[in-house]
């Protein structure tokens, strides 16, 4: 008998009698009076920055100033991508400075934003960039993760990720260090 059958048989004979799934009433979960305000608070708490006044103008300024520095940027907000980003490998993305992309959903309780595989074009991009810029329509902010999963189909694509803040670690004496392996900063533009 192979491992699979051994395991499944052991599980089948050792499991308890069937117990019911809980009846979850999500109306009992937290609702915020001001979703945008709560979301922005959580972005800041997670070490990110959020811009909501003149968001569009701020974003254009951001793009212009990073471009002016002559750094490698990937702007996934453009309708027609400059090139096929999906084809790039880690070595080719190594020097990526800033990436601009759109999130389709955001969560007020924790500042997390859902980035689908389509939006990121290449799975490595949102992780390998030094700085991550996410553009978001404030109308897509939901209260909490239950609402998020009700709206999303997380298995619709091959990959997707909730991102909340820049990468971080506290592995040295519980001291928070922003910029562990992934992006060192996160800017969110609410437009």
């Amino acid at each position: 008998m192979g491992n699979r059958e051994t395991i499944l048989q052991a599980v089948a004979s050792n499991k308890p009698d069937l117990l019911a799934l809980p009846d979850m009433d999500f109306s009992l979960t937290i609702q915020y009076p001001d979703l945008l305000d709560q979301f922005i608070k959580m972005v800041h708490a997670a070490g990110g920055q959020a811009f909501y006044k003149n968001g569009n103008q701020e974003l254009q300024n951001d793009l212009a100033s990073v471009k002016a520095e002559g750094k490698f940027i990937i702007n996934l907000l453009e309708e027609n991508p400059a090139q096929d980003w999906a084809a790039l490998n880690a070595l080719e993305l190594e020097t990526l400075d800033t990436c601009y992309l759109r999130a389709d959903l955001a969560v007020a309780e924790n500042g997390a934003m859902w980035i689908s595989e389509t939006r990121m074009a290449n799975r490595l991009i949102p992780f390998i960039c030094q700085h991550l810029v996410i553009v978001l329509n404030p109308a897509v902010i939901v209260n909490n993760m239950h609402e998020a999963y009700q709206q999303l189909n997380v298995s619709a694509e091959g990959f997707g990720v909730f991102i909340a803040g820049p990468s971080k670690t506290a592995d040295i004496e519980q001291n928070l260090v922003i910029g562990a392996h992934g992006a060192r900063s996160l800017r969110v533009y609410l437009i």
């Binding site: 959580m42 708490a45 997670a46 969560v107 309780e109 924790n110 500042g111 997390a112 992780f127 909490n144 993760m145 239950h146 997380v154 298995s155 694509e157 091959g158 990959f159 997707g160 990720v161 909730f162 991102i163 909340a164 803040g165 820049p166 990468s167 971080k168 506290a170 992934g182």
Partner: peptide
């Protein structure tokens, strides 16, 4: 996901919650 990181470190969620399908 609401329980995990709040219990672990007091964060409301981990920075990255990656969903792999294919």
């Amino acid at each position: 996901l609401r329980l995990l990181t709040r219990s672990a470190t007091g964060q409301p969620i981990t920075t990255f919650s990656s969903h792999f399908n294919k």
